[in-house]
């Protein structure tokens, strides 16, 4: 089992990276740092997918020299999927940052705890 963790070192690294992003999402109270954590976690998912598509000793999926055998190239499907994922992550990040700008205009702070306290006061008063 431990040996498999070392052979799958790309996947192990992506899991560790994902945990770092996840912990950032939990532990930081600054909203922008939470978004940074989300982006780190997304990057880990891309790394995982592209690592699953790689096959040792094969070329990138661009036909070169007229060779069209399936055994000469790596898997092109995860790359195409990740292209979609990157675009979605850019969109989500932009939307979240716009929401944060709006929140900052309302409460003039980025600290989530202070925002919760201010919002609670607003609801009471």
């Amino acid at each position: 089992m431990g040996v498999r963790l070392l052979t799958n070192y790309y996947e192990t690294a992506s899991v560790i990276l994902f945990s770092i992003g996840f912990a950032t999402l939990f532990l930081h109270r600054n909203l922008i740092k939470k978004i940074i954590g989300l982006n780190i976690a997304e990057t880990a998912v891309y790394l995982y997918f592209v690592a699953k598509g790689y096959i040792t000793g094969r070329a990138a999926p661009i036909i070169a020299g007229g060779i069209q055998e399936a055994d000469a190239y790596v898997n092109p499907v995860p790359t195409g999927l990740i292209l979609t994922g990157i675009v979605i992550s850019v969109s989500v990040t932009a939307f979240a940052l716009a929401l944060i700008v709006k929140i900052y205009k309302q409460y003039e702070t980025l600290d989530l705890d202070e925002i919760m306290i201010l919002a609670g006061k607003e609801e009471e008063g």
Binding site: M1, G2, R4, L5, T7, N8, Y9, Y10, E11, T12, V15, I16, F18, S19, A51, K52, G53, Y54, I55, T56, G57, P61, Q68, E69, A70, D71, A72, Y73, N75, P76, V77, P78
Partner: peptide, 30 residues
């Protein structure tokens, strides 16, 4: 992280040509 690492240890090895993700779909594309 521990659950995910446990899952990674059960995955097919990295860079294996017999990886189940390399099925008839990428074969047809290439």
């Amino acid at each position: 992280a521990c659950v995910l690492l446990f899952m990674v240890s059960a995955l097919p090895p990295f860079g294996d040509p017999g990886n189940p993700a390399f099925n008839e779909v990428p074969r047809k594309y290439i």
